[in-house]
């Protein structure tokens, strides 16, 4: 399979380049911890927010995994703009490289990064006394959810990157999408205490699908059917947004 082979080598390239950035690695590790500690302290006094979880940090941890993955995915398109600016993409286009792999590798890379971060967050949580009630399967669900949420938004992000092709516009677009979707989810508070209309909107928010599945795995450690439905929804969303990114890539190809 050329697509799989090319995608793999392009993921290797991107991952290796990122590992050369010490600041990037530092942020990768530190950022989730800061969120976990900051929000954990901020909201820990309000018991109504955490629902059935025994501590707020236990309630928050799966949310932070999803939030991290979601932000990572939203910004993933920046690296496509860099590659476009530096003519790396046009160099690949003159080779027989699978065209699909040029886009898909970026999406996969975002998913893998989020997975590594999810693992770090789980380990930090373990140190803070958070028990994953779903056991080993629970850990796996959280990792998969991290990857899927990142990939859903990496697809959108790359689609936008390929349409606007400018960093400044890209930043504006990412912020425009990012913050509303975060507050229209139960990352920070449980869904039941949200205003009614927000609850209805949140039902269609992929961020929220991820939060629910990850929280089921960590806090309740059951409801595997619900988790399965949310994972399937995220898989479908990944397929749709990746198709969108691929479509914008075609239109980029036509524009050169």
């Amino acid at each position: 399979m050329t697509i799989a082979r090319d995608t793999w080598w392009m993921v290797v390239r991107q991952a290796r380049n990122l590992m050369r950035e010490p600041i990037w690695i530092a942020l990768l590790l530190i950022q989730p911890m800061i969120w976990l500690l900051l929000y954990g302290q901020l909201f820990s006094r309000v018991p109504a927010l955490r629902g059935s979880a025994s501590t707020y940090i236990e309630f928050l941890l799966p949310g932070i995994v999803v939030m991290n993955a979601f932000f990572g995915g939203t910004w993933a398109g920046m690296s496509m703009i860099t590659d476009l600016d530096r003519n790396v993409v046009s160099r690949f286009l003159a080779t027989p490289a699978s065209r699909l792999s040029i886009v898909l590798s970026q999406v996969v890379r975002a998913g893998l990064t989020a997975m590594v971060q999810a693992l770090i967050i789980l380990l930090v949580g373990l140190a803070l006394g958070v028990r994953v009630h779903g056991g080993a399967a629970g850990w796996l669900v959280v990792l998969v959810i991290g990857a899927l949420v990142a990939m859903v938004f990496a697809g959108i992000s790359h689609g936008i990157a390929l349409l606007v092709r400018r960093e400044a516009t890209m930043i504006a677009a990412a912020n425009f999408v990012g913050l509303p979707l975060m507050f229209l989810s139960s990352i920070l508070i449980q869904q039941r205490v949200m205003p009614g209309w927000m609850q209805s909107v949140a039902r269609f928010n992929p961020v929220n699908w991820g939060v629910h599945a990850a929280r089921d795995a960590v806090v309740t450690g059951g409801q595997w059917g619900q988790i399965g439905v949310n994972v399937l929804l995220l898989l479908a969303a990944t397929a749709v947004t990746s198709a969108f990114a691929t479509w914008t890539f075609r239109s980029y190809q036509r524009s050169i």
Binding site: R13, R16, N17, R20, R86, N87, V88, S90, R91, A94
Partner: peptide
Amino acid sequence: VPQDSGVDREA
């Protein structure tokens, strides 16, 4: 070989 270098500068 394009006019503007297409090398990956971080590699």
